[in-house]
């Protein structure tokens, strides 16, 4: 990996995930669009809904880390250096942000009264 350009990165991601890559990208795009739509419609964030989404986000972040452990046959005891903690944090943040955006959008679109 002496050089890493975006073409290589995309090629590797495609090999890694196959059609799932496009499913994930489309889902992320839809969630983001839905999130923006709900924001504009409500003219801002709805605090109650955001708190629920953030609670779910914590579960999503932890879930992301556990999923990575599961697919790589490893666990917390394998964390060996500072970069490993950065990776754990990055996976947690990705899982958490994705879940918050997704949950906020779903709550905003389908459970408007409840939350």
């Amino acid at each position: 990996m002496k050089e890493l350009d975006i073409g290589t990165f995309v090629a590797v991601l495609q090999e890694m995930m196959g059609p799932l890559l496009w499913v994930i990208l489309v889902a992320a795009a839809l969630a983001t669009l839905g999130f923006v739509y709900v924001l504009v419609r409500d003219r801002g964030l709805v605090a109650r809904r955001l708190v629920w989404s953030e609670a779910l986000g914590v579960i999503g972040g932890v879930g992301g880390v556990l999923l990575m452990h599961e697919i790589t046959h490893s666990d917390f005891a394998d964390i060996g250096g500072p970069i490993d903690w950065v990776v754990v944090a990055a996976i947690f943040v990705l899982g958490a942000v994705g879940t918050v955006v997704g949950a906020y959008t779903v709550l905003g679109l389908f459970f408007r009264r409840a939350a």
Partner: peptide, 16 residues
């Protein structure tokens, strides 16, 4: 000895 290197071996090497 790092976890990230293990992840690369198990997840990223074959696609690369």
């Amino acid at each position: 000895e790092l976890w990230i290197t293990w992840i690369m071996k198990e997840v990223a090497l074959k696609p690369t």
